[in-house]
Simulated scan of single mutants.
Amino acid sequence: MSGKKISLADWQQQLGRPAEAATAASDDLVYSTDSGRIDKPKPQKVVAQSFSDGHARLRRETKGRNGKAVITISGLAESTETLAEIAALLKKKCGCGGSVKDGVIEIQGDQRELVQQELTKLGYKHKWAGG
């Protein structure tokens, strides 16, 4: 055996295995001497689902939050980045904190009127859900 280094695909080709086997074997690779650590591409995050009537749902929640009110906005069928931008805009307008979790925007505090006005300005139709 010679001291020459060859790639995994070339080695498998010399053994007589088809190229598909080389790609299947390379799917399990974690490290390569040529390129270093091999990271698998991360799956795309699921875009939030919208409701069939096309309206976003605004809900005031206090359950599990020690009595503190939070406005949640669900049903905006946008990408995660767009939801983060909308949340940032709403947080600035309301002067409070918030986050985006699983396609739902959470705005801290009872800011019903401001959230409703800003969503209308952005062109989203909305309905109040819950009590």
Rank of each mutant, 00 (worst) to 15 (best):
F51N: 10
L8D: 02
L29H: 01
A22Q: 08
I105S: 04
Q117T: 05
K63Q: 11
A24C: 08
G109P: 10
L15A: 10
L29S: 08
Q108S: 13
H55E: 07
G123S: 08
G131N: 08
L76A: 09
S26H: 04
I73T: 03
T120M: 06
A22W: 05
D39M: 11
R17G: 03
T80W: 02
L119R: 00
Q108H: 11
S79V: 05
Y31C: 07
A84M: 11
T72C: 08
K127I: 10
Q14Y: 05
P41D: 07
A22K: 07
A48D: 11
I73K: 03
G64A: 09
R17S: 10
K101H: 13
L76M: 12
A22P: 08
E61M: 14
L114P: 01
G109Q: 12
E78R: 15
K4P: 04
G97Y: 03
K42H: 02
R60L: 13
W11Y: 06
T80Y: 02
D53V: 00
K45L: 14
E78A: 14
K68N: 12
Q44V: 12
L114N: 09
Q44I: 11
R37A: 13
Y124T: 07
I105A: 04
S26Q: 12
D39V: 10
R60Q: 07
G54C: 05
L8F: 05
S7C: 07
W11P: 00
A25F: 13
K101T: 14
V104G: 06
D102S: 15
L58C: 00
Y31N: 10
C96W: 06
